[in-house]
């Protein structure tokens, strides 16, 4: 069986000390088709981590967006669209498909969207991030396969490119988001 060749995306370069991990920072997205790697993002709070994975092509990507809508800062949106859910999500889909995934095979999962304690409805960044996630998926006619969102805790999310499994770590505990 031949090994899927790695597309040398600039963004695939692992950061120092991370070995086989491709790290997604805040307001960042990464795509890879190297099955020896995992894509990881640390400490999702009100931010949302979205993963796309094609189990046949073994291509996956992850976006870590921070705010729901780019209208609050067009300048920042132009410099880094991955900061915002409304711009980052379509780019993630485009990049994963350009790396060889088929849209109809994509498994989409999400985690994060936590809320600051006792938010009385004034800011609700976590909830609004969750809303924009669902709004865009609705427009694309794509269903979430699994999600773990809300609450007050932070989450670390890892997508394993060999099999598409997604692990979460929160408050010292590990759990599987996909497959359930």
């Amino acid at each position: 069986m031949s090994r899927t060749p790695s597309i040398p995306l600039r963004t695939e370069t692992p950061r120092a000390g991370e070995g086989d991990k491709v790290v997604v920072g805040v307001a960042d997205l990464q795509v890879s088709r190297d099955p020896s790697k995992s894509i990881i993002t640390y400490a999702l709070g009100s931010c949302i981590g979205v993963t796309l994975y094609d189990p046949v092509a073994k291509v996956g990507g992850m976006l870590h967006f921070m705010l729901p809508e780019s209208q609050v800062s067009t300048e920042k949106a132009a410099a880094n669209p991955a900061m915002f859910g409304d711009l980052g999500m379509p780019i993630l889909f485009d990049k994963v498909i350009a790396a060889g995934a088929k849209r109809e095979r994509l498994i989409v999962c999400a985690a994060g969207g936590a809320e600051v304690l006792a938010d009385d409805g004034h800011f609700r960044i976590g909830s609004r991030n969750r809303t924009v996630l669902r709004k865009i998926l609705w427009k694309l006619n794509i269903l979430l396969a699994a999600d773990d969102t809300g609450g007050q805790h932070s989450r670390t999310m890892t997508l394993r490119l060999a099999d598409g499994s997604i692990a979460l770590r929160s408050q010292g505990k590990d759990s599987a988001l996909w497959p359930r």
């Binding site: 805040v26 999702l44 921070m66 932070s154």
Partner: peptide, 16 residues
């Protein structure tokens, strides 16, 4: 915190 900085196990367990 909203910028995703300094989030440990205490997460967002601080009210505004």
């Amino acid at each position: 915190r909203w910028a995703g900085l300094g989030l440990g196990c205490d997460g967002l367990m601080y009210p505004f």
